[in-house]
Amino acid sequence: MTMIELRNVHKRFDELEVLKGINLTVEKGEVVIIIGASGSGKSTMLRVINNLEPIQAGEVWVAGIPVHDPKQAGEVHRIAGMVFQQFNLFPHLTALQNVTLALRKVKKLDQKEADRLGGKALEHVGLADKASAYPAEMSGGQQQRVAIARALAMEPEIMLFDEATSALDPELVGEVTGVMRQLAAEGMTMLVVTHEMGFARDVGDRVVFVDEGVIAEEGPPEVLFTAPSNPRTQQFLHRVLDR
């Protein structure tokens, strides 16, 4: 079943065209890794899917919802959960409150039920003991895991990761990719923008290389990382992998 479909998507920021005709499909249960240079448009692609940015042309379909239609676009948040580079946890709420806010306000659960499901989500990411801690009291890795729990608690069918580990100190990256690997193993449909090539190779079903607003190449990780056909892909991998 096709969970995400982008058809000829164009997106501009003022004068600058960032997405120049993107075509992409993501099947249920697939883990798609998106790589590319800064400014290539990969984060924008994710944000377009999640209705955080409008498009100028093309169609965006998420589980049958036309996200390009402003009237129905809001529905996408029922289906997709997003994890941000800057975590974006609510600093004035505890970890548990962060997780249960939407459960109470959007799903209209009562406090007890919300706390129960919230507790489970925190357990899932290994942070049940941090339920009453505030974001400022947690490490970056812990904060990001709470952010993942917050998105998971809403029981999405798709998880979008926008450079989820780029803002973390290197030693904290592992705890977050660990959770992401777990999710992948559980069959979650995932779209992951990342620089973590190791993760991409191990966990990705497919790798998509975005270059200057278009998808330059895509394929299974074992093919794309070892024998990319597009010279731009080769250049990029050379720059990124041979640090």
Binding site: N50, H77, F84, Q86, N88, L89, A102, K105, A147, A151
Partner: peptide, 17 residues
């Protein structure tokens, strides 16, 4: 920070919420 609004929107919260 703008990210706060985006995170809240991603969770499906309404404008008022």
């Amino acid at each position: 920070p703008r990210g706060q609004r985006e995170a809240a929107r991603s969770l499906g919260l309404s404008r008022y919420q």
